[in-house]
Design a protein around this nucleic acid. Sequence first.
DNA 1: ACGCCTACCTGCTTGC
DNA 2: TGCAAGCAGGTAGGCG
Length: 322
Amino acid sequence: MPELPEVETIARELRPLLDGATITGFQTDWPRAIKYPDPERFATQLAGREVLDVTRRAKWLIMPLSGDMVLAVQVKMTGQLFVVEPHVTGDRHVHHVFALADGRELRIRDVRKFGRLGLYRRGEEGLILGADDIGELYDQFGPEPLAEDFTVRRFRALIRTRRGRLKPLLMDQAFLAGIGNIYADEALWRARLHPLRSAASLKPDDERRLYTAIRDVLGEGIARRGSSVDDYTAPEGDGEMQRYLNVYQRTGTPCRRCDRPLRRFVLGMRSTHFCSWCQRLPRAEQTPANRKLLKGAVANARRGPRWSELPLGEGAVGAERD
DNA sequence: ACGCCTACCTGCTTGC
DNA sequence: TGCAAGCAGGTAGGCG
């Protein structure tokens, strides 16, 4: 599930591969993925442009092009990008192909076809996303959690404006950019905060631990080239972070801090993994609604892990993927 | 602001 | 064994 560390890894690995490359053509068998402008203009306006850089904002890949245009790619769940020689065999999941002047191809493979592409003008205050109603990419998201000027002081000011539960809040891109299901669960475990804990209830020390946990887990994710669970892989191959995740998809296995079995429950249609011992929910927040959500967590732990929730790479039965 | 729901997709897993 | 239902989740959009 590409989140900030995964998209950052894709950007870092594409950058040298696309340095100085010129796009000469574009073909797609899934034009519905072209978000802006229409597929025809997308292809014609791309032709002849040089790729000046490959960067990231939130979970978007951003490629500034010559002529003050920007190619933006949103990989969502299953998008993968590769730069290959044209003779390299693809498969039916390769939906978009950018021809490059030196003969190579930038290919986007996307099993579930959730990924989106857009070609925009580059504005002065950032990226102008065009005439549709997406808004301004650089303003619609919250701060980049790894930015140098994103201090604990700024984080405190930000979180004190919010009142909802921590997990959905961390995943809200308008609050912080780039955190998804995996790193939300991991950050909360590191900070010893319950996913259902309300932001308004945090003490200054809770806020500091959460800030540190978010930055640490995202930084480590980048250092390990992302978490290759399900369909994520980078241009240079799978990441390593999946082996170092402490709660995500580890239901029923011992918590690495306290040895008690990790639990899973569903929050907003998302799998949520946590340690009920290390991440306590204060009595005041044990509301009927929260209790109801957590009932399933007990049953889940009793039933034991699904094979896909066993630790990867540890020789566990069924852990082999692909 | 917040919470809850649905839709978009395909492949894998589960249950009958 | 086969087949359908369920599940995975990033994001937009709708509703209350």
